[in-house]
Structures are given as structure tokens and as C-alpha cells.
């Protein structure tokens, strides 16, 4: 129960942070990604602040032996930079630049976005589900 409450609280703080930074607004994200006159660097500052707080905060909580409601902290990401990572990140960037939304802002805006947002989240889910199907059929394992 405490696990669920703390997960929900973390989600709420995450969503409020996105809203305060106005990153639930696709126009705000596109103003950062579009490098023309009148460029709005706000998203870059929000990202930098998020990384700074996380980088320091992680090191503080890692001084504990284990998380409060779990057995262990995750091991470092030991994978390598490979074609799969680059291709996935490229596809992600393509959609991000075309629409001005990524998964966090899209879900955080669900309470007040319009039908276009619902369509976007459905398409995003379709893409993720397509990946799961391919992976379960192990069509992707040979590509790594």
C-alpha cells in the first residue's frame, strides 16, 4: 500500500512539475525545438534543473542501504550504445519534433487536452504495443 501511495505521489509531483514549467503545452515544447528567431529556451532550463536535482538527490538516497519500500537499488545501466538505441532515439526525435509532445507531457495533459491529444496517446500506445508484439515474437532479438 505504501508503495502505491509513494508511486502516486511521485507521479503527481512529476505532473505538477511539467505543468508549472508549461511543458504540458506542445507549443511550448516546439518553441524550444524550433531553432528560428524568437527561440524559447525554457525547456532546456527545465531539463537542466531536473537533471541537477536528480543527480544530487540520487546520490543522497543511494547513501541508504536500500530503498524504503523495496529490496535494492537498480544496478547501473551497463548496456552499450548500439544501433538499436540510436534507431529508437531517432524515431523518438522524429515524432517529438513533428508533434511537440513526448510521453510524460502527453499523459500529464490528459485531464485538459483535446481529441488530438487522445489520438496522440492512442498512437503512442499503438507504437509501444507494436514493439511488445515484435519482441515477444522475438523478431527483434536477431536485430541486436
Amino acid at each position: 500500500m505504501f508503495r502505491l501511495i509513494s508511486a502516486a505521489m511521485a507521479g503527481a509531483v512529476f505532473g505538477i512539475g511539467l505543468t508549472v514549467a508549461q511543458l504540458t503545452n506542445p507549443a511550448k515544447i516546439l518553441s524550444f525545438l524550433t531553432l528560428v528567431e524568437g527561440w524559447d529556451g525554457s525547456l532546456g532550463l527545465a531539463l537542466a534543473a531536473a537533471i541537477a536535482v536528480t543527480a544530487i538527490g540520487y546520490r543522497l538516497v543511494w547513501m541508504r542501504e536500500r530503498p524504503i519500500f523495496a529490496r535494492a537499488f537498480p544496478p547501473p545501466d551497463s548496456g552499450e550504445v548500439n544501433a538499436r538505441l540510436m534507431l529508437g532515439a531517432g524515431l523518438f526525435g522524429l515524432g517529438w519534433g513533428a508533434v511537440g509532445l513526448c510521453p510524460g507531457p502527453a499523459i500529464a495533459a490528459l485531464g485538459f487536452g483535446g481529441p488530438e491529444l487522445l489520438g496522440f496517446v492512442a498512437a503512442m500506445f499503438g507504437g509501444a504495443a507494436g514493439y511488445e508484439l515484435l519482441e515477444r515474437g522475438s523478431l527483434l532479438t536477431s536485430a541486436t
Binding site: T19, A49, F69
Partner: peptide, 25 residues
């Protein structure tokens, strides 16, 4: 350009990430 709200919102996002790591790892 909204630097103050961007920094404050970003800091909250970081706080949420730290909460999830501290509570659930």
C-alpha cells in the same frame, strides 16, 4: 521565455524522480 517557472518545474520533476528512487528504487 519563462526561466523561473521552467527552473521551478524542472526541479519538481527532479524531486519526483528522487522520490521514486528513494521509495521504490
Amino acid at each position: 521565455f519563462t526561466p523561473m517557472t521552467a527552473l521551478a518545474g524542472g526541479a519538481l520533476i527532479g524531486l519526483a524522480a528522487v522520490m521514486l528512487m528513494g521509495a521504490l528504487g
